[in-house]
Simulated assay, not measured.
Amino acid sequence: MEKRWNILQADPARVGDLQASLGINEVLCRLLIQRGIRTFDEARSFFRPTINDLHSPWLMKDMEKAVARIRQAFGAGEKILVYGDYDVDGTTAVACLFQFLRKCHPPEKVDFYIPHRYREGYGISRQGIDFARDNGFTLVVSLDCGIKSADLIQYADTMGIDFIVCDHHLPDLVLPPAVAILNPKQKDCPYPYKELCGCGVGFKLITALAQQLGFPEEEPLSYLDLVATAIAADIVSIDGENRVLAYYGLKKANETPNNGIRALTQLSGLQKQLKMTNLVFMIAPRVNAAGRMDDARKVVHLFTAPDLSEAMAYATQLHADNSDRKEADYNMTEEALALLEKDASHSARRSTVIYQPHWHKGVVGIVASRLIERYYRPTVVLTRSGEAGRR
């Protein structure tokens, strides 16, 4: 496959001006200019981010509505369900908001829901809404999902269940009938930074609630190691506000980590400081493995564990899930490669489509990535799910 590189060019005059103000090597100044950093103040924010660089959560469209509805639920003694996706971004977001709401509201009136990857699929599910109805929840806060679930949220509305949607995916033309939608990618949302992950949007909601309820300024910052984990795993841009959140999140992960982060780090045998690459390649695969191989609810239990011993028990389960995932990944990849090598016509094809009914549903996407690395072609890997094929 031919690769075409688009090399950004830096204006020599701007490079010279920046070098004069910073007094550092020209190559570094050229790289900064290529990243859109042109002034001394912008460079200082890049190299030395501060918490004060974070934007006010009240700039986000519907934040006042979301906070008002949650406070209404507090006052009326309603049951609140925190609903999130089964990946790293969703589970960390749920863990953050679930813990915070239990500090504000009777713990027995707050619960969480993570849909099962294979029984329910991604995002809001009818089963999840029925769970809310059957257990008396009248307010659902969705995290990292919901923006594309207009029909299902309408279904919830017919049963008297309100939704607050916290999401970062691109909205459709038709928005869900939620009481509030927090998503900086909405066309009419004035929030200055558009690249927050789902956990980042949840962090903004926690920050706004903490301000209104009179919590110390440090309260929202206690969740930053989980926010940084979501930023790393979701491969969002680490610039602007995400850079600030990642910087301070890594700092917390190394100094006073969440019990779940500490347990996973110990199990992984890391003897040095955590870096973003460790979150991507060490923490994230173990968290994602829970949803791929089993039930991602255990991830929320891990990140909300009150002590290290309980966190270690859940981390051990995730570690085992990840080992199973690696074994399935290796075996399926080897089998797929062997099948393709036996297919004489495959070398002349422009795409790869392969199917085996016994392959694990949670690993077919990873195997497809392995085949792309080998053949550099559009690839679909299928397995059997009930009476249908599944990719």
Score class of each variant (00 low, 15 high):
Arg4Phe: 12
Ile7Met: 12
Pro12Thr: 04
Ala13Pro: 01
Arg14Gln: 15
Arg14Ser: 12
Gly16Ala: 13
Gly16Pro: 01
Leu18Phe: 05
Gln19Asp: 03
Gln34Cys: 15
Thr39Tyr: 05
Phe47Ile: 07
Pro49Leu: 11
Pro49Val: 04
Asp53Trp: 05
Pro57Ile: 02
Leu59Tyr: 08
Val67Asp: 04
Ala68Phe: 05
Ile70Pro: 02
Phe74Leu: 12
Gly77His: 10
Ile80Thr: 06
Leu81Ala: 03
Gly84Pro: 01
Asp85Ile: 06
Ala95Val: 03
Gln99Ile: 00
Arg102Glu: 08
Arg102Gln: 15
Pro107His: 06
Tyr118Glu: 08
Tyr118Leu: 14
Tyr122Ser: 08
Ser125Gly: 10
Asp130Val: 08
Ala132Asp: 13
Asp134Glu: 15
Asn135Ile: 07
Gly136Trp: 10
Thr138Pro: 03
Leu139Ile: 01
Val141Arg: 00
Ser142Leu: 00
Leu143Asn: 07
Cys145Pro: 00
Ile147Met: 00
Ala150Val: 09
Ile153Ala: 02
Asp157Met: 09
Gly160Asn: 07
Ile161Leu: 03
Asp162Glu: 15
Ile164Pro: 00
Ile164Gly: 00
Pro176Glu: 06
Asn183Gly: 00
Pro184Asp: 00
Pro184Gly: 01
Asp188Tyr: 08
Pro190Leu: 08
Glu195Ala: 13
Cys197Glu: 07
Cys197Ile: 12
Val201Leu: 00
Phe203Leu: 12
Leu209Ile: 11
Phe215Gln: 12
Glu219Asp: 04
Pro220Trp: 07
Ser222Asn: 06
Leu226Ala: 05
Thr229Glu: 03
Asp234Glu: 13
Ile235His: 09
Arg243His: 10
Lys251Trp: 08
Asn254Glu: 07
Glu255His: 12
Thr256Gly: 02
Thr256Glu: 10
Pro257Gly: 13
Ala263Lys: 11
Gln273Phe: 10
Met276Gln: 14
Val280Thr: 14
Pro285Ser: 05
Val287Phe: 01
Ala290Leu: 10
Met293Ser: 06
Val300Ala: 11
His301Asp: 15
Thr304His: 02
Ala311Asn: 13
Ala311Cys: 08
Tyr314Leu: 12
Ala315Glu: 08
Ala320Tyr: 09
Asn322Met: 02
Ser323Asp: 09
Tyr330His: 11
Met332Trp: 03
Ala338Gln: 14
Leu339Met: 15
Leu340Val: 13
Ala348Trp: 12
Arg349Met: 10
Trp359His: 11
Val364His: 03
Ile366Lys: 06
Ser369Glu: 04
Arg370Met: 04
Val381Leu: 10
Gly389Pro: 02
Gly389His: 09
